[in-house]
Amino acid sequence: MTWVLANLGLIWARTLDHVVLSLPPILLCFVIAVPLGWLARRYRVSRGIILTGAGLLYAVPSLPLIFVLPAVIGTSLLSPLNVIIALTLYGIALMVRVVSDGLDSVDADVRQSASAMGYSTWSRFWQVELPLAGPVLLAGMRVVAVSTVSLVTVGAVIGVQSLGSLFTDGFQRGIQAEIVAGLVATVALALLFDGALVLAGRMLMPWTRRVTTAKPSVPVEVSAA
């Protein structure tokens, strides 16, 4: 505990490093997985290729991937970009299947009626299918967020600083409190991200909250919003 109190500044700095490393992969993988997942669902050929590819990608161990990436994309060995790109790839590997399954989960009746209303394929995707796949996407993103936060620590082994550096440093110098602090802070950060996603989901998908608590029969005002 004394170590923690004496090093609050360090823990905070590593926490910020950790956030900076984990946020981009989480956001990027979502943005990239949505079109890929759509493509996987759209054509039978692309489905096989994309889903198998994603599965294989996920099977690549993280440490070798982070070592190999610089050679493949020409970044320096110590660049944080390696970690960000590697984790984005893992996120994509997971989310592509989730997106494809999520889109599959949309009720065929709803999809058909949306077309009958006069939604174009494009607007139907963005305004009907994607939002309705939301709960499934959210579940996937929660897994991605937590696993990304935890995987960022691996970067410490190659010298990219994060909360993982507290493990490596603690091991090398035999400071147990530092290891525990890194562990606790990582878990706390993961929980924070998870909570933020749940909250965002509630705000973005109000229809999934069953508001069965009897709504008072107040006449609705027309809002210009």
Binding site: V110, S115, M117, G118, P131
Partner: peptide, 30 residues
Amino acid sequence: PVKLRRGIGYVMQNSGLLPHRTVVDNVATV
């Protein structure tokens, strides 16, 4: 087709309402 459909009313079995839109927004869809 898209333009044609926006000019024709369509009511189906199981209503086919958009589950993520309120009643008033469902009616206002088209």
